[in-house]
Nucleic acid binder design. Structure first.
Lengths: 138, 138
DNA sequence: TTGCGTGCAAAGGTTTTGCATGGCA
DNA sequence: TGCCATGCAAAACCTTTGCACGCAA
């Protein structure tokens, strides 16, 4: 599960920052800046490469934004292993909703059975419009 | 509905190509290349600007892909009212599958009704593992 | 003639890669 | 020592913008 590798200051401070902000979604740039402000300077390249590793290791979730905007990353908390758990992200206010829903399991099952594809709920984010924003835009 | 404007060869051949490939997803690059091969050369800039207009006019649907990949465009056929169309992306080989599936509509309906969130299938990409990669990794 | 449309070139942004150096084990 | 990790600079990538010219109406 963990890609072996050496222990370094950079890896430690990046993972640490993500854990401390597990309720937020941060861009690679946010992370670079926050570390610099904290006196824990890490090169931009290293931030990207570390995030890539963490995503591969399933420790971090990556949110793909529409082109032009930068991707967001968020630490995957320990308890989040249940497969009925998934995420909704509002395109307008950016709110991230965590939902437990058996309907999602039904979809995953259906896709596995009929389309031969194993959906990873931890990595998947459904984009749309939340109730609040839908109201405001009427 | 239609942003007025002049009639030009470029607009015509681009819309024509999209109509003839209404069952496929084309990137701006695909379109540029296909037109060039067909002897109907159109500048890349014009392709982008024309697609932008078509999307604004609701004649074409734009699929935002994860960063790094280019956006896809597809002509919206006359009778097409429901959006049961969505995307699966393999974490390993990067394959992008386009799927028509009513189960997805059921999920969207459920989420709208029970969670007050309007899922945008056009922007949503489900991540996971495709059949081929699942086989190779066993 | 008027002003939208076109397309080259260059800029814009995020992310990746080449390569020499640094540092863990 | 051996190999992974780092980080600067440069490249790659898709897309947008500046600007002069072309062309529809």
């Amino acid at each position: 599960m963990n890609s072996a590798g050496y222990k370094t200051r950079q890896k430690a401070v990046i993972e640490d920052l993500l854990i401390k902000n597990a309720d937020r979604h941060l861009t690679a740039d946010d992370i670079t800046d926050m570390l610099k402000e904290g006196g824990n300077d890490v090169g931009r390249t290293t931030v990207y490469r570390t995030l890539e590793r963490l995503v591969t290791d399933n420790k971090v979730r990556r949110f793909s934004m529409p082109q032009g905007d930068s991707a967001c990353y968020q630490y995957i908390s320990a308890g989040e292993t249940c497969h009925e758990h998934f995420h909704l992200k509002c395109n307008y206010c950016g709110a991230l909703l965590h939902i437990e829903c058996e309907q999602m399991s039904l979809l995953s099952e259906h896709i596995a059975k009929h389309h031969g594809f194993a959906v990873d709920n931890l990595k998947t984010v459904l984009y749309g419009v939340c109730q609040k924003c839908a109201g405001e835009r009427k």
